[in-house]
Design a protein around this nucleic acid. Structure first.
Lengths: 348, 348
DNA sequence: GAATGTCACGAAAACGTTTTCGTGTTAAAA
DNA sequence: TTTTAACACGAAAACGTTTTCGTGACATTC
């Protein structure tokens, strides 16, 4: 089994020095045309490619960015990855992934694994557990060693770094306003516990929309789910909670859910209770998922433009990496990605 | 902005040699306890971690595996990645991803980017375009340089390497048999053009099941879709083709589709034509997707165990990487992952 | 013929490790 | 007191590059 060919081997074979080979391949004017041609022909024949690791060591730059996400089997996150990968590759970078599985310790371990020279910078969305624990030492530590971080979607205000976020508040507000304009009088909210930053903001958007239209929020119209449970495998419990929500309110004609699964479950429960969608109750979800599109009826959703988030995050990170030469005063940006309301059949 | 601390800096600070620092940190018996403690304390204080790139260069081993897939926004592939990532991390490896976007040239470029020292081996599923072009030089070239490859799902028999595949033939056969047992007399097949290896095998499974039950396949019951089109954005055309399929056959009471989208579209069309599922027509799809579960009615599917495929592929690759020390005669395995029939409401 | 300049190339350092081998110091053995 | 052994450490090479600087050979100029 052959190994990859190196400069040294070429040099030996052609009876010149390593430096000469290197220069010949990079077309340096120092080298005569004869030698250049000889070397280049030989290199081509043996399919020579410079060893990336050696280059990384020499240049103290890996041209690789690390992305840490809580979960990859999730349309939102895989779309973000696609966005990151797209611009990264175009700009000459590789992407290396780490999954935290929503666990704090796995997040820390993964970051440590990558931070030791493997990558030039991080793009990440923090795990639920980290959000709960409020322990951010691994972020500050990484940044203090000169490794830039870009956070997306689930960000944390305590850390000063570049961020790309969804306009959760206004996205939610617009959705709820849509329901109001469509004539809904009693709009339920299905959301998460408050420690999930995005859940909190979407809840806030719901409240603002009501307020703007002089409607009073009612506590029993708001269902806060504890989403530390994996509802992909515990769908029944989720549906049960939602059914209770419907039953404890005589009249719900609109539902705003902070994610796709909650919205779909709401539709399912409503149908089960004999309600027609969208005539009796209208439903809007929040997501970039594929379920909404193929559901029956199609679910109206707030689209987050996940791929765009990934692209912006990658650009932000690479810009920082390549400007760092001038070590200008640290200046962090927060890019807010506007949402779109994608109207389907679950609203009038 | 601080850089990461190195052995050299520690050595200078403590006024010992680099070798001493290195040995002290690795608890070498050569070093006195005094010095060890001094060095270790200092290293801990400054949070010293060995530079991975330097280690990779020295050891000629990156402990990173590259995975090339056609598309990441796809449940099957993201589940495979999760499987790979899981065992890779457990065994001390990182995972770096490359997307081919179903394009031959992107596949080649991506592989070249990674093959130059960045990774120790590949796990990949080949793009549709590569399957069409039948150009596999990048695989042979990579392997001839001593870099092992494990192919999964979409494999190619021309290349000798480890493989992890789904038992497409039997998966399809079992599904169709299920329909037959359930009383279907006229079973349609919605598949892809033959160059897609998995499509071909599933078609074959369909035919075998019919044959085993003395049923004659009818040409106008078989619809071969040209899936070079992106049907996520051209759903209508897909549905139109399927509607023609239904219209050109007086009586279809069963549908087997080789993927989730085709199956869902078939259900949609059937409903549109006034047919009840599963009473008038029963439908089975082939996938590991999330749509089937949340569709109404739930779609009965052939599950591929994508995550398990990723796990097996990663184990195969790492085993090879770590055994290569003895350079035993190359011996390649092909692991066949059995499928499961997940029964939901689209069948009786 | 001496001084200067150009050309074509090689030596060596550097990136951050690990590891082999050599060496000076001290303590124990003869 | 000399020999030997153990001990504690340092020098240097190696992994594969790129780049700076030095140098010998030859040609040109005065």
């Amino acid at each position: 089994m052959k190994r990859k060919i190196t400069l040294k081997q070429i040099a030996k074979e052609l009876d010149v020095s390593i430096s000469t080979v290197s220069k010949a391949l990079r077309n340096s004017p120092e080298i005569s045309n004869d030698t250049k041609q000889k070397v280049q022909a030989f290199a081509k024949l043996y399919n020579y490619r410079p060893n990336n690791i050696a280059l990384s060591l020499k240049n103290r730059k890996t041209n690789t960015i690390g992305i840490i996400i809580p979960e990859i089997v999730h349309h939102f996150f895989s779309k973000v990855i696609r966005g990151v990968e797209l611009v990264a590759n175009n700009r000459g970078y590789n992407v290396i992934i780490g999954l935290s599985n929503e666990s704090f310790s796995k997040e820390v371990i993964n970051m440590e694994m990558l931070a030791n020279g493997s990558i030039d910078g991080f793009i990440l969305s923090i795990s639920k557990e980290t959000q709960q624990l409020q322990d951010f030492h691994h972020f500050t530590e990484t940044m203090s060693q000169g490794m830039p971080i870009v956070m997306f979607d689930r960000v944390v205000s305590e850390i000063d770094c570049d961020k790309v976020i969804v306009d959760d508040l206004n996205g939610a507000k617009n959705a709820v306003e849509k329901l109001i304009i469509n004539g809904c009088k009693s709009i339920a909210l299905i959301t998460t516990k408050d420690y999930v930053s995005v859940g909190k903001l979407r809840t806030q958007g719901y409240l603002e929309a009501l307020k703007d239209h002089k409607m009073t929020p009612k506590a029993n119209l708001i269902l806060k789910i504890d989403d530390t449970l994996d509802f992909e495998t515990h769908l029944d419990e989720l549906e049960e909670e939602i059914e209770q929500l419907f039953n404890s309110n005589e009249y719900i004609d609109g539902v705003f859910a902070v994610n796709e699964l909650y919205a779909l479950s709401a539709m399912k429960v409503a149908r089960k209770l004999g309600l027609n969608i969208p005539n009796d109750v209208q439903v809007i979800g929040f997501t970039d998922g594929v379920l909404s599109k193929h559901a029956t009826p199609g679910l109206t959703t707030v689209s987050q433009h996940a791929q765009q988030m990934g692209e912006r995050a990658a650009d932000l990170l690479i810009d920082k990496l390549e400007s760092e030469i001038d070590t200008e005063e640290e200046e962090f940006q927060t890019i807010v990605i506007a949402t779109d309301l994608v109207e389907r059949e679950s609203t009038k």
